[in-house]
Write a protein that binds this DNA or RNA. Structure first.
Length: 827
DNA sequence: TTTTAATGTGTTTTT
DNA sequence: CACATTAAAA
């Protein structure tokens, strides 16, 4: 019965696809496989086939059979508000995904009426995958994503209602600071008086608490500094609207404003999203909270999941009270507590419980497990960060050799991203594959942003921010003064800077540089011209090559001895572009709009384009929200390195927690405030509970961080764990007492001899010629050997400025490398 | 006016 | 240490 119902549901919902299918039939080519873009055929296949024993075939009731009593209650709860307080490792994600699957299978809830929101891209991807595993392809109709991505999508639809147009740009923090600086310049506020970065922080904080520039000004009341900030805030806000730009905070803020001021829009989404789920609810801030409350106001079918002990985003305006007050927001709501932990050993759980018990502001609860006691927590006291790194590399290697863990079962977690460096080099040296998550986000890298700026300017010549970024990249002898002049003229005439550039010859102020400016205009025109002749991926590659960025990077590398291969990053961008194209390109009749915006809002989920320029537009819309694609990594066996923040929601067989020292963790910025300290403690709680079987805690006596050697005490949090749970290695040291006055030891020898020596060393090392194949020796198809990756086969050789970019296949792992620095040898 | 070299500065965590 | 801003040189 359930099957029949869901089949009907599918057919009704997908009936419009028949048109596409019939059209395709006309061009049907026997030799190729059937095109099945919607997955409709595949789905029919899986529904009707009894032989398919995949999880997608689970009946609604068999879903429940796998759950404990509390989980069952949560999953089968359909209507009305529901609060799930889920401790770490209590099967939270499982409950969410199963609940969605159950709603669809048991109650025939339309997937397009379900809204499932998480905080990070990683969590969203994970959720999508797991739901797909349960219900099959229908999962794609669920509105599942991060707050930012979903809200941005809705905002585009109704942009005009809040004074924007639908192609608004989303800018990251860097561009945000740039705009703030511009605003300050216009207001004649010197950067010596007010730091742009702290203004950025203030503004962000205002938006997170929904304080308007006017309100901020009133609050400032006479305070000279804050009045200046208020002015900048106001100017900055105007700038955003004028230039059709939103920053990250705006996406959340504008969403709640949109819903608040437009009853008809609210009404529409009230009806559309009949069921709303929010994961990590303890991390919501005010705008998010307001938006969610409005969205849920009609049906009140809202289910929030969270854990007050895992609230670690208060710096972003997250407010634990949101989850603590849920019962007040929805009197009589159902509350379910999940306290049974299925993840960690007793030892790990006890340690976590002991640590978090020291926090005063929390709902008291204790995780329990019926699992094994497990190994003690290994506490390693290393001499310095190098010793720390080698300890980890050796331990991982040993565990791998003994078959205890695979590489992908191991994670190295840290409080600050900067700690990853030394571990990276140790892992590299030992030949252990790894991947660093977070830190400098892929899309934040200079070279990536430069290319993106080219694409943005090609896509929209009015994008002044992009214009300013690349007008002199690579160097074209166009300096600040010239840019300043162009900007003034542009403001004066209310035209784009690129337009002014095009007419450079007609402005006397620009006559001297007009040749250079025109060269730039020609370049952009030249780049723009062949867009429709190429696939999206190839077009991006074309821009990378023709813009001269690659040449410049190579030139710089030669001079400075660049360690990071920026060219590799650019090639990685092509992979992303190809992936994007795969998901968003669709063949269409020529007379249709390049970008398909249907009136059916369900289709917004997967917007498509038929032309390359259309794809480019789509791609750029959300570029600021993208993270490095980590979905297809699952099969590979490698160690993961990430901050504790980004590890939330994940679990690993074996966790190495590094830098567990006072002033690193807890951070020196937190140790003065009791409240911040509690957040650090929650962070420690999150870190500990990531581990399933083994936890290694590593601290060092001396650490080189931010260019200075620090001598820190072991973290106070280690004192909170019963010593009986610990196995200590290395030199014995007492953890810091909570009330110890902590003096962050800073060596004030800024220009020490050591510094001078080491920098001299580096230059010398880079001069050393790399032995290995040269560009004229290497050919595609050749077998080569690499120090780290071993034997591989050359797939492609591409000459670039005296060097060559080679693509090598190392046993299924493809790597792009610059030949002169790769040190490849012929086999 | 732009490029280069020297000096200064800050450096949590994420979308 | 990495990066950004500032001062001197081209």
């Amino acid at each position: 019965m359930g099957h029949i119902k869901s089949v009907l549901g599918v057919i009704i919902e997908r009936s419009y696809f028949y048109g596409v299918i019939i059209l395709d039939y006309d061009n049907y080519d026997e030799s190729s496989s059937i095109t099945d873009p919607s997955g409709f055929f595949a789905e029919l296949e899986s529904i009707y086939s009894d032989t398919n024993s995949g999880e997608a075939d689970k009946s609604a009731d068999s879903l429940l059979a796998e759950l404990n009593a509390e989980q069952k209650a949560a999953v089968s709860h359909l209507d009305g508000p529901l609060l799930i307080l889920a401790g770490a490792g209590s099967g939270k994600t499982r409950v969410i995904t199963y609940r969605i699957a159950y709603m669809m299978k048991k109650h025939s809830v339309q997937p397009s009426s379900i809204l499932a929101i998480t905080f990070t891209n990683k969590a969203a991807n994970e959720m999508k995958e797991r739901i797909t595993a349960l219900v099959g392809d229908r999962a794609r109709y669920i509105w599942c994503g991060t707050f930012h991505s979903i809200f941005a999508r809705i905002l585009r639809r109704h942009a005009e209602l809040i004074g924007y147009s639908d192609n608004f740009t989303i800018v990251d923090t860097d561009d945000q600071v740039k705009l703030i600086k511009d605003s300050m310049k216009e207001l004649d506020i010197p950067e010596s008086k007010v730091k742009p970065k702290s203004v950025q922080y203030e503004i962000s904080s205002c938006k997170n608490h929904m304080i308007s520039p006017e309100e901020f000004k009133e609050d400032a009341a006479g305070d000279v500094y804050r009045l200046m900030v208020a002015k900048i805030y106001k100017r900055y806000s105007e700038k955003l609207v004028q230039n059709n730009i939103m920053d990250f905070d705006d996406i959340l803020l504008n969403m709640s404003i949109l819903l608040e001021n437009n009853p008809d829009v609210l009404d529409f989404y009230n009806d559309k999203f009949k069921y709303i789920m929010v994961d990590e609810y303890q991390d919501t801030n005010l705008p998010q909270y307001r938006a969610i409350m409005l969205l849920a106001s009609k049906h009140k079918n809202i289910c929030v999941v969270g854990d007050d002990d895992q609230s670690i985003y208060s710096f972003r305006g997250a407010d634990v009270r949101m989850i603590l007050n849920f019962e007040k927001d929805f009197p009589g709501c159902k509350v379910i507590k999940l306290e049974e932990n299925y993840r960690s050993t007793k030892t790990i759980l006890e340690a976590a419980n002991e640590v978090i018990a020291n926090n005063t502001k929390r709902k008291s609860k204790a995780l329990r497990t019926s699992g094994a006691q497990g190994d003690k927590i290994i506490v390693m006291n290393a001499d310095d960060q190098v010793g720390e790194a080698y300890f980890i590399a050796n331990t991982i290697k040993t565990m791998k050799q003994k078959g205890k863990f695979g590489y992908s079962d191991c994670a190295i977690l840290y409080r600050v991203n900067a700690l990853s460096r030394s571990v990276e080099s140790a892992l590299r040296e030992k030949g252990i594959p790894f991947k660093v998550y977070g830190g400098l986000r892929f899309y934040d890298r200079k070279e990536i942003k430069d290319i993106l700026a080219y694409l943005r300017l090609i896509n929209d010549s009015k994008d002044n921010l992009a214009f300013e970024r690349i007008i002199n990249v690579p160097k074209r002898s166009i300096g600040d003064t010239t840019v300043e002049k162009i900007r003034e003229i542009a403001i004066e005439e209310n035209r784009s800077m690129f337009d002014i550039c095009r007419d450079a010859a007609s402005y006397s102020e620009l006559s001297r540089v007009s040749a250079k400016l025109l060269y730039f205009v020609d370049l952009i025109d030249k780049l723009r011209a062949p867009i429709e002749e190429k696939s999206f991926r190839d077009y991006v590659e074309y821009v990378e090559n023709e813009s001269g960025i690659i040449e410049e990077i190579i030139a710089q590398r030669e001079k400075k001895g660049e360690v990071v291969d920026r060219v590799e990053n650019l090639k990685e961008l092509l992979t992303e572009a190809a992936e994007f194209e795969k998901n968003h390109r669709v063949e269409k009749d020529e007379d249709e709009l390049p970008v398909e915006i249907t009136d059916d809002l369900d289709e917004l989920e997967n917007r498509t384009a038929s032309t390359t320029s259309g794809l480019l537009t789509l791609y750029l819309e959300n570029a600021a929200l993208y993270t490095e694609g980590d979905s297809n990594d699952e099969s590979e066996d490698f160690v993961r390195l990430m901050s504790i923040h980004s590890a939330k929601g994940l679990e690993f067989g074996s966790v190495f927690l590094i830098g567990v020292e006072e002033s690193v963790f807890p951070s020196y910025r937190s140790i003065t405030s009791e409240e911040d300290l509690e957040e650090e403690r929650r962070l420690m709680y999150v870190a500990i509970t990531r581990a399933k079987k083994n936890l290694f805690v590593i601290m060092t006596r001396q650490r080189m961080l931010f260019g200075q050697t620090q001598y820190n005490m072991p973290s106070r949090f280690m004192r909170e764990i019963d010593p009986a749970l610990l196995y200590k290695m290395g030199a014995e040291r007492k953890p810091a007492k909570t009330d110890d006055a902590v003096v962050p030891m800073r060596e004030d020898a800024r220009k020490s001899i050591a510094n001078a020596l080491s920098s001299g060393f580096r230059k010398e090392a880079s001069k050393k010629p790399k032995e290995g194949l040269t560009p004229d020796q290497i050919k595609a198809g050749m077998e080569v050997k690499h120090d780290r990756f071993g034997i591989g086969k050359v797939l492609k050789v591409e000459p670039v400025g005296g060097d060559a970019l080679v693509t090598v296949d190392f046993d299924g792992m493809r790597k792009n490398m610059l030949l002169n620095s790769a040190g490849l040898k012929k086999v």
